[in-house]
Structures are given as structure tokens and as C-alpha cells.
Design a protein around this nucleic acid. Structure first.
Length: 509
RNA sequence: GGCCCGUUGGUCAAUCGGUUAAGACGCCUCCCUUUCACGGAGGAAUGAGGGGUUCGACUCCCCUACGGGCUACCA
């Protein structure tokens, strides 16, 4: 294994939006490949024609590309290991399935869905609510183990629909060596005769994953923990196909769980709790329904990757902010947790805030510009460049730049006038009216001059700066937030400053 | 129900037999700041329970409890 090329794969099925757990699996694969100088391949598991969704494959590629973890090989970048869509590899699965039947490791089964239901109903008991198709039950079903050879060939000739099932041996220990969990032992009596080849001629995941991992020379196979129970089927298949010595090293990643209750995180939880679950916006081609993604929610890909990497993995130090190259350097499968992690959106936002703070103005410029544009604010680059340093410490999501910047471009839509009213009186109105007159004659419109002017005027009226500076801010920006007030006044200009004060004054009457 | 995986503060988590059980998010207090953030200093908060093994267990073993996954001609 040491001298073998490291090859890993991410194998999503194109059924919809790309879940953050999927991105993390892709990321861990990518990091492992980078760390060991291997190849990261994308394989599309589109064997379920009923669940296939138009556009999902391209969308997945876009997500990975946005995250900066584009695969080295895949349908978009073929090499000698292709094709990379399982639907395009159909013929191979059939021939391997037949080979397994010939060798006695699999068999034809002609049971209809109704007959399967019937069987499950018949064998159902309190102690066994979901009977399997296994050593016991297969003897009573319609398959090439119970039928005569003639009957079987007749069925096939008559195009009676059939599936091919693996024939799980009785009373055998199947050992999985998992890089994260160590040795996991399964008893073959507990695993059922999984369908390998479906009636439509397509393989199930079980067959496809081992055929493809073998043919694509995958050295390490990583996937979510939900696959652990079917691992014995895959191990048996590697053995039966005579490829045991080529079997990849397995690792089953812990699941990403719902923040509140129980269970793995789903798209629904995001909708319910108000945070994204998909990497990017996903539009369902049938319903047209849009599901929000991290990208559109205002996440930086660097932050997204960073927070995902730390969900179930750490380098053993207390460092939390990593860029992708550093992750690739420090990553190791052995340091991945065994237990699932609840997703915490607050912490996710913190990561993003850290990355915004770390990003340069120039890197932020196009992103901020876009946020402003989607809110119908068009501005020169120069102005945005001047503004970004003023507010970026106040933004956790890119979209926060809109709230933090809008009042530089337009008068505030809403003014928290009640916050002013509470401690207002005529003397303050008078003061501002007089100060406006002074502003009108002001030649140098700089923060410093403005502050001087304001403070001197205040002093001469025997008022306190604190009592008027906050109201002034609210008049200019609409609320209690934003950079130093005289910076704002200076940047929005004389006319806007005076207009906004006057407007608030009329509201106060 | 069965099988499998897991279990350190509310959350993410360090520890790989000997520590006052790190750090981070969130929360609270204070400082900085006549706003909000950022930053700084503090604070509350953790080994599921019970048995072993050991001079010594968060760490190793067993049982229980709890959580999760799987149990499709879906992946």
C-alpha cells in the first residue's frame, strides 16, 4: 500500500442540494488527497433513475469549486478511470453481477414487490419487526436457489423481472478495520441478501461502490457513519470478486447532528431554525422552490471550509482558524472524532466574522460591491474601498455590509426617533438649528473640524456632548450603530448631514 | 425489536494512566469607546451512572442508562 498512489473519491448522488455534511466529506477527501499527494475524484452515483434531478451534478461541481476543493478527476475532467457517472457504467455492473451468480455468491430473485411485502408481513413478529431476506427466508422465496434451473431460464427468457441478490453466508464473522473506529465485527447472520442489481438493470449502491472503487483504484474509501451497517456487504463483495488485496482502507465519519433535538441535520432543520444547510442556493427544478445556501447567506468559502473542518476534527492544538493549505498539511484521519457533532450556527457565524476581519479590503471589495448591488446601491470602487475598513469589524456575514454601509449612500429609511425623544427638549432643537447654520459656512469638511465645531458649540451652550452626540448619530444613520459619527458626517457630505438633521428635527415636532 | 456506532460544560472540544480537566462559541461582569462592534481583563458552566483493573483513572475492561445510525429493487 505504501508505494501505491493515493486515490480518494467523493461520490454524491445528484438528487438535490449539497448538504454541509456532504461538503465536509468532500473536504476531508480533498485534504487527505492533498496531504498525501494523491488524487481526489468525483463520481456521480446516479443509479436511482427515480431520484435523479436535472442540474444537480453541475450544481455540485459549482459548490465544490466555490469551496476551493475542485476534484482532480470526474465527469468534468475525465481520465483513463472514467466514465465517472454510474449510469454510464451500467454494462460493467451487469457482468460482475452475473459473474457472482456463476460463482455461487449471488442469485436471481423473481419476487415481486408485493411478494416481498407479503414475506415481511408473514415473518414479522414482536421480536423481529423487520424480517430480512436471508438464509432462512430465501428458501421460501422465488429465486434461483429455490427454483429449478429450467424455471429460472424460462423466467429469464420470458422477461420476468428479476434482481440479483448477494448470497450472504451463514454464521461468519466479517471484520472491518476502520481507520477511525478500529475493528468492527459483524455477524453475517445479521446481514441480509442485499439487492445488487435492480430489475431495471441498474446496480444498487452496494455493487456499484465496490466495482467502481476497484476499477478506479481507490485506495481509501471515506463516507458517513450511516454506511457502517452495510460495510459487511461491501467487504464480502470485495472478497467474492477476488479483489480483497485491493480493498481500500475504510473510514466512517461521524454525523453532523441537529442543533437542538435528535437526529442528523437535514435541510428541514435549516428552514425551521433559520440557517442554511446547503452550500449554495438550490432551486428545485420542479417546484421552483429555492433553498438558501451558505454562499448566498454571506459566508466566505474560506470560513465555510474552516468551520466544516473543525466539525469533527482538530489538530490537537487550540488553533481554530486555518486556511485550506494549512488544513491539508495538518489533516489526519486518525484525529477525526468518533462521536457526532451538533451543528452550531452561532459558532459558524463567528468563524465567518473572523475571516472577514482577516480578509483584505481588496479581497472584500468585489463581494461587498455585490452585496450593495443586490440591494440596489451602485458605488464606485474607490468609495467602497474607503468604507470597508470602517465597518468590517462589525460584520459577521457579508450581507451585514449592507446594513453597515447603506446610510453612506442614502438617507436612513427608518430612524429610531423614540431613542432620541426620550431625553429631548427645545434647547437641543435650538442648538442643532444653530449648529446647522455654522455647518453651512464650514470650509473644511473633515471629521476633526466637525468634531471641534460640535464640541465648541456644545460648550458655549453649556450642554453636554454625550447628550447630543448619540442623537446626532441616530439622525445620520438611523440607529445606534456604525463607525465614529464625525467620520460618517464627513463622508456623507455637508448637504446630506444637514438634510438628515433637519428631517429628524421635523420628526421630533 | 435486532444489529452497529457513540457519550468530557448549553455547543465545538484538548487530554492518548498521574493536569488546579486546556481552548473556542454563546452567556454574564468590568475596561477601552459620549453609538454599535473590535480589542482587553475576569466569571458561571464539564468527565452519564454503577462496578472492576491499577499505587493512581476522563483515559483500560464490564454492565446499565442515554443519544445516534441502519434495518428499501434510496443513496
Amino acid at each position: 500500500m505504501a508505494d501505491k498512489q493515493i486515490r480518494v473519491r467523493f461520490a454524491p448522488s445528484p438528487t438535490g442540494g449539497l448538504h454541509l455534511g456532504g461538503v465536509r466529506t468532500a473536504l476531508f477527501n480533498y485534504l487527505f488527497a492533498r496531504k498525501h499527494g494523491g488524487k481526489f475524484v468525483l463520481r456521480i452515483e446516479d443509479t436511482d433513475q427515480g431520484r435523479y434531478v436535472q442540474g444537480a451534478e453541475e450544481y455540485i461541481l459549482n459548490c465544490l469549486s466555490w469551496c476551493g476543493i475542485s476534484p482532480d478527476e470526474g465527469p468534468h475532467k475525465p481520465s483513463e478511470f472514467g466514465p465517472y457517472r454510474q449510469s454510464e457504467r451500467k454494462a460493467r455492473y451487469l457482468s460482475y453481477a452475473k459473474k457472482l451468480v456463476q460463482m455461487g455468491y449471488a442469485y436471481y430473485a423473481f419476487d415481486t414487490p408485493e411478494e416481498l411485502d407479503l414475506m415481511r408481513e408473514k415473518f414479522k413478529s414482536l421480536t423481529n419487526p423487520s424480517p430480512q431476506y436471508n438464509v432462512i427466508t430465501r428458501a421460501q422465496m422465488k429465486n434461483s436457489l429455490t427454483l429449478t434451473e429450467d424455471e429460472v431460464t424460462k423466467n429469464i427468457d420470458n422477461r420476468v423481472p428479476y434482481v440479483i441478490r448477494i448470497k450472504i453466508p451463514a454464521a461468519q464473522n466479517i471484520v472491518l478495520n476502520d481507520m477511525i473506529r478500529g475493528e468492527v465485527i459483524f455477524n453475517s447472520d445479521e446481514v441480509d441478501d442485499k439487492v445488487l442489481l435492480k430489475a431495471d438493470g441498474m446496480p444498487t449502491y452496494h455493487l456499484a461502490v465496490v466495482v467502481d472503487d476497484y476499477e478506479m483504484e481507490i485506495s481509501h474509501a471515506f463516507r458517513g457513519e450511516e454506511w457502517l451497517p452495510s460495510a459487511p456487504v461491501h467487504i464480502l463483495l470485495w472478497e467474492y470478486l477476488g479483489w480483497k488485496t485491493h480493498m481500500p482502507q475504510w473510514a466512517h465519519f461521524p454525523l453532523i447532528l441537529k442543533p437542538d433535538g435528535k437526529g442528523k441535520l437535514s435541510k428541514r432543520d435549516g428552514d425551521r431554525l433559520g440557517f442554511p444547510v446547503y452550500a449554495m442556493d438550490w432551486t428545485d427544478p420542479k417546484s421552483g422552490e429555492i433553498t438558501k445556501g451558505f454562499k448566498e447567506m454571506g459566508f466566505l468559502p474560506e470560513a465555510f471550509i474552516n468551520l466544516l473542518a473543525l466539525l469533527g476534527w482538530n489538530d490537537g492544538s487550540s488553533q481554530e482558524i486555518f486556511e485550506i493549505a494549512e488544513l491539508a498539511e495538518k489533516f489526519s484521519i486518525e484525529r477525526i472524532h468518533k462521536g457526532g457533532a451538533k451543528f452550531d450556527f452561532e459558532k459558524a457565524k463567528w468563524f465567518n466574522g473572523e475571516w472577514i476581519k482577516r480578509s483584505s479590503t481588496i479581497d472584500l471589495l468585489p463581494l461587498v460591491k455585490k452585496v450593495l448591488e443586490t440591494n440596489e446601491i451602485n458605488s464606485s470602487d474607490e468609495k467602497i474601498v474607503a468604507l470597508i475598513p470602517l465597518v468590517k469589524d462589525r460584520c459577521q456575514l457579508l450581507n451585514d455590509f449592507y446594513t453597515q454601509l447603506a446610510y453612506f449612500f442614502q438617507d436612513p429609511h427608518e430612524i429610531d426617533i423614540n431613542a432620541i425623544k426620550a431625553k429631548w427638549d427645545d434647547s437641543k432643537t435650538t442648538f442643532l438649528k444653530e449648529w446647522i447654520e455654522e455647518l453651512k459656512t464650514m470650509l473644511e469638511w473633515t471629521p476633526l473640524k466637525l468634531e471641534d465645531s460640535f464640541k465648541q458649540a456644545i460648550a458655549s451652550k453649556q450642554l453636554k456632548a454625550g447628550e447630543l452626540q448619540l442623537p446626532l448619530r441616530i439622525m445620520l444613520v438611523g440607529g445606534k450603530f456604525g463607525p465614529p459619527v464625525f467620520d460618517i458626517a464627513s463622508l456623507i457630505g455637508k448637504d446630506s448631514t444637514i438634510r438628515r438633521i433637519e428631517h429628524s428635527l421635523t420628526l421630533l415636532n
